[in-house]
Nucleic acid binder design. Structure first.
Length: 435
RNA sequence: AGAGAGGUGUCCGAGUGGUUGAAGGAGCACGCCUGGAAAGCGUGUAUACCCGCAAGGGUAUCGAGGGUUCGAAUCCCUUCCUCUCUGCCA
């Protein structure tokens, strides 16, 4: 794919940070098992140095040229044509020099940006080192795992028995991973969405309904591009992408925005379908609702003052847990290790529910602090107390993703005759049992 | 989708080749004035990068990209967006 360079990114701040905190950045990248970290960082610093010296040359020549142009203007005004023509002749040399330096400058700048695009966020100091999900740190486990009857079934059998979700129909219409929710299955979806949105509103989040097709700039802003374009569906005729998460449109609402300190904290919640190509990730454990190309999710997004973002991360963590508690689902919270964390995140908590018939933990939420990584790409800043521009922090979390919640509800609440619905959902559902 | 109009600083709005980072107004901030407020007066009020310990200075930016020119907000090309009319449509 053609990689478009976005203009005017404040990436230079990132370079300064690398320069001033070289060891810390290096250690962070190593925690992520980022290959060739040291040499890449040196490349960054080297390119930046070249960029600066080239800019200096260019600017000086340009300044000279500007002076001459002004003089020509004055001469012409005074009717001194001859002298003006005289000076004009001398500018051609300067002009070609400027052009050379300019071309060189653009080259360095683009190379630099390309390299910077490949650098993931530096993990928070508390993030454990590790290579895979096995190295994630267990923070807590909560709730009791239900003891199910002998004939317990995984959700993909339950949904067939009760005809509430139809995968074959989805295959006919779209393809694998696009289920059709029917009857009580559809109503369960709607009930969960409404429940999640109502809860978020009570917690102070402002509901938004963003577009679910986004442009390229938005993809770069939150970090899906240029790294993960293969994971998104593309509407190529219009250069738009189907969102993999509401994080993309909601966070991008704040692209190119300058906030006041008094605007913090900004709390938004949005319900959207999410689309993921999941290229290469099909294998074991993806039956039923465990992994889909299209699914529904309610997402919470906060824009925070840097001093408060970790406090807010904990608040969001607790908020997501409160939802799981209210749904009476057993869950655990993990702090992701460097190797398992997303590209843009500095610290991520994963919430997993226990799906009692599959006898597996299923990830249903991921709550992350991106610190200023996304803000840097978004140019999302605020004027601090000293009146200086500073990058804000962005955070988000699923609250919650539906399919695996549905899977766990179905499996965990089944008995010989059917499935009872969590009490808290019953007012939303209008029924208390399936089957 | 076709025809036309337009995109200028926080906002409104001037500006069709030469000290224009950009008139004027509003807003905002500070100061003066006031018993307090309003009005009035004065001053200030963009962002990025670069040089500099700093004070300060340089370069760029008038939707975006490119071109013409010694010099462009102003001319040309491309593109995006908005508005009006026509067409189509949930």
């Amino acid at each position: 794919m053609h990689i478009q360079i976005l203009r005017d990114f404040t990436f230079m701040l990132q370079v300064n940070f690398i320069e001033e905190n070289f060891e810390q950045v290096l250690e962070g990248l190593r925690k992520r098992n980022f290959a060739h970290a040291e040499s890449i960082l040196h490349t960054v610093l080297d390119l930046d140095k070249k960029r600066k010296s080239t800019q200096l040359e260019r600017d000086q020549l340009q300044a000279e040229s500007n002076v001459i142009s002004k003089r020509i203007g004055l001469l012409l005004r005074d009717g001194n044509k001859e002298e003006a023509e005289n000076i004009k002749a001398r500018t051609s040399e300067i002009k070609s020099s400027i052009k050379q330096f300019e071309e060189q400058y653009v080259t360095y700048e683009e190379e630099l940006k390309q390299v910077l695009y490949t650098l993931p966020n530096v993990p928070h100091s508390s993030v454990p080192a590790g290579k895979s999900a096995d190295d994630n740190e267990l923070i807590l486990e909560s709730g009791t795992i239900p003891a199910l009857h002998q004939g317990k079934k995984p959700h993909w059998e339950l949904i067939k028995d009760f005809d509430i979700i139809d995968f074959d129909l989805g295959v006919k219409i779209s393809g694998a991973g696009f289920p059709v929710y029917k009857g009580k299955g559809a109503r369960l979806q709607r009930a969960l969405v409404n429940f999640f949105l109502d809860e978020a509103q009570k917690a102070g989040y402002t509901e938004v309904q963003p577009p679910i097709l986004v442009n390229e700039d938005s993809g770069y802003g939150t970090g899906q591009l240029p790294d993960k374009e293969g994971q998104m569906y593309e509407a190529t005729a219009d250069k738009l992408y189907l969102i993999p998460t509401a994080e993309v449109p909601i966070t991008n609402m704040y692209r190119d925005v300058i906030l006041q300190e008094s605007d913090f904290p900004i709390k938004n919640v949005g319900f959207t379908p999410c689309f993921r190509r999941e290229a290469g990730s099909w294998g074991a454990h993806v039956r039923g609702l465990n992994r889909l190309h299209q699914f529904d999710k309610v997402e919470i997004v906060q824009i925070a003052h840097p001093d408060q973002s970790y406090e807010i991360l904990e608040e969001m963590n607790l908020y997501v847990q409160s939802l799981l508690n209210k749904l009476n689902l057993p869950y655990r919270v993990l702090k992701l290790c460097g190797g398992d964390m997303g590209f843009t995140s500095a610290l991520t908590y994963d919430m997993e529910v226990y799906s009692a018939a599959q006898e597996r933990w299923l990830e249903v939420s991921s709550v992350s602090n991106f610190e200023n990584f996304q803000a840097n790409r978004l140019k999302l800043r605020f004027k601090n107390e000293e009146g200086k521009m500073q990058l804000a922090h962005t955070l988000n979390g699923s609250a919650l993703a539906l399919p695996r919640i549905v899977a766990a509800i179905l499996e965990n609440n089944q008995d010989e005759n059917g499935i009872s619905m969590p009490e808290i959902l019953q007012p939303y559902l209008g029924f208390d049992r399936i089957g």
